[in-house]
Simulated scan of single mutants.
Amino acid sequence: MSDALFSIFPNERFVDLSLYQFGWEACEPLHSYGPFARNHYLFHYIISGAGTLQSTNSEGVTHTYHIKSGQGFLICPKQINTYSADEDHPWEYAWVEFDGLKAKEVLELSGLSMDSPIYRSNAKDISALLLEEILYIARHADASPFNLIGHLYLMIDYLTQSSASRKIIKGGSMRDFYIREALSFIEQNFQNDITVEDIANFCNLNRSYFGKIFRDAVGKSPQEFLITYRMMKAAQLLKMTELSVGDISNAMGYPNQLHFSRAFKKIYGISPRQWRTENKIPDKRT
């Protein structure tokens, strides 16, 4: 049996970048995982040994990559993948699953994508710091959420700095302005019965054009992001308050509790009641 660490991040309050799961594993020969598709970004750093990744590109074509120690690989949301350890030199890796408003942007800086998933270092000293941060996260599941998020930001910084495929992206465009306006509108109105049309109108943009630039910048359609944002806020209320599921459903703009429960389960994999049971913070008052 493989030696491994596995942890789930205990907090849902971070929007720009947030952790979901993280861990470390020394795999047995030919140990494999998949085929599977993730809901978030997943980055593996190979500490020792080697293995194989099979993953689809942006056109749905499957490619095979042989990866060794000192390299890494990225799995993107909804990308079908299978990865397996080498028979003679099985890999040991550490991994972090993350997402957020800035995730797609920072990964573009690193040059990693569905079409170019393999991390290769051009700076050994910085890639050593990258591994150090991933291992810190994997080994400190009991640290505070702010502590772990801080190390996630450091990890992302070292990833972009050391990636051999790093790109320079110019900022300050009108697209960035519109995206900030859209996100601000969603943040202030998510509890109301707003539509993608409402958000596009607020930005004075054609809905089709708005949808395109939003997906390019955020990595999700406006509708997908709005639902995810609402469910993130709902999870926070389930965890921190005594409000009923019905009250939280209404607060998230879902007068129909069944529709709310279905949307929540699609994001978190379990019902709101079950999520609360597993994540509710105990009342420490005496």
Rank of each mutant, 00 (worst) to 15 (best):
H66F: 13
R38K: 08
K104D: 05
D99G: 12
V96T: 11
Y119T: 00
L5C: 10
Y20V: 00
R38A: 06
Y45D: 02
Y20Q: 01
Y33C: 03
E92A: 06
K78L: 04
H89N: 10
D99H: 08
M114R: 08
L53T: 07
G111N: 07
E108G: 12
C76H: 14
H63A: 10
D115L: 01
F22H: 02
P29H: 03
K78C: 00
A4N: 14
I67K: 01
L17K: 03
I75D: 05
L17D: 05
P117A: 03
I8H: 08
L30D: 11
G72H: 04
S58R: 11
L109Y: 13
R120C: 06
F43A: 02
Y83L: 00
S113L: 00
S116E: 05
S58E: 12
V96N: 05
W24P: 02
Y119K: 02
T62D: 12
G60Y: 08
S55K: 12
Y20W: 01
W91T: 06
T56L: 02
E12F: 09
Y45R: 02
K68N: 06
P29E: 02
E92T: 12
P10H: 11
Q54R: 15
L107D: 08
Q21T: 12
E28C: 01
W91A: 05
E105S: 15
I8P: 04
W24C: 04
S58F: 11
A94P: 08
L107Q: 11
Q21E: 12
F98S: 08
E97L: 03
H31Y: 15
L19Q: 00
F36T: 15
N81W: 03
Q79N: 13
G70H: 09
H66C: 10
I46H: 01
L42R: 05
S69V: 03
S55Y: 05
N57V: 06
L5I: 13
S84Q: 13
I46F: 02
Y45Q: 04
S48I: 00
S7N: 14
N122L: 12
A85P: 04
A85C: 04
G60M: 05
E87P: 01
L42C: 11
S48N: 02
D86S: 13
Q54C: 15
T52A: 13
D99S: 13
I118Q: 02
N57K: 04
G111M: 07
H66I: 10
G23E: 00
S69C: 08
L17S: 07
L107Y: 12
I8K: 13
S55N: 14
W24H: 07
G23I: 01
S7M: 09
S84D: 03
C76E: 15
Y119M: 02
P90F: 12
P117C: 02
G111W: 07
H40W: 11
N81G: 08
A103E: 00
H31G: 14
I80Y: 08
D99Y: 10
K104N: 06
S7Y: 15
F22S: 01
H66N: 14
G111V: 07
L112M: 10
I8D: 06
W95H: 09
E105I: 09
G51S: 13
G60A: 07
F9R: 09
L30I: 05
F14A: 06
G51M: 11
G111C: 05
D86V: 07
S121M: 07
I67S: 01
S69I: 03
K78M: 06
W91V: 03
T56P: 00
A26F: 02
T52R: 15
N39I: 03
F9T: 04
P117E: 01
G72Q: 04
N39F: 04
Y83P: 01
S18P: 05
L17H: 11
